[in-house]
Amino acid sequence: MALVEIKNLHKSFGTNHVLRGIDFTVEQGEVVCVIGPSGSGKSTLLRCVNLLEKPQEGQVIVRGEDITDPDCHLDAARQQIGMVFQQFNLFPHLSVLANCTVAQRTVLKRGPQDADRIARANLERVGLSDKIHAYPAQLSGGQQQRVAIARALSMDPALMLFDEPTSALDPELVGDVLTVMRKLALDGMTMLVVTHEMAFAREVADRVVFMDAGVIVEQGPPADVIGSPKEERTRTFLRRVLDPTHVEPA
């Protein structure tokens, strides 16, 4: 059984039809990168997986449970899905350690010692053991994003969603975050990543999904989709991304 199964997903904002019938699955342990031009609906798709956006039509099935069903216990489903945002969204009034323990304590009802131990282990994993008492505003963007990853991991999720995790970072800080994500993938975490980092997608992804105008245009192993795309739209996009100075022939 697939970990996540999405069936015929439609989402509109007003008259703007952002997702036009998405079907796809993520298997246990798989790393899937979603690429595509801005406005193609890839972030919206990701945000539909934990229902931060409510789709108008279609189903999102996580571990066999349809979370679009109004009777579904959504908060419980979200505990299994970690999410990392483009703008980090750390809680600025809490220390790094408290950022990683607050949901463990209040949602999973873990005791203070357990929560503390798990948070410290995950901060160690992202290489920030020395910052546990700092506040988010005292950290660089790259450090904040790694704390955000540790915060999500502290809930022991079955799936991690990454919404353009490096897009808000200064170029020299991108590497640290990608290193953490690469390690996570090697540890067998199931990951769904919306990204513009083609090198990362090519190296780490088991499968690359190319989206444009609210539909999945093409998907497959990175060597195929990025290396030798079949669709013209994919080729145009990749030419622009991989060689921004390239001018289209008139």
């Binding site: 931060l52 999410m83 969204n89 949602v107």
Partner: peptide
């Protein structure tokens, strides 16, 4: 984004308000 991050962690709307939004 603060409420979204808290919701994504599985917090109920009451907890989101008490733990994340109101303190800020």
């Amino acid at each position: 984004g603060q409420a979204e991050a808290a919701e994504a962690l599985g917090m109920s709307s009451g907890k989101v308000m008490r733990r994340v939004v109101l303190p800020q």
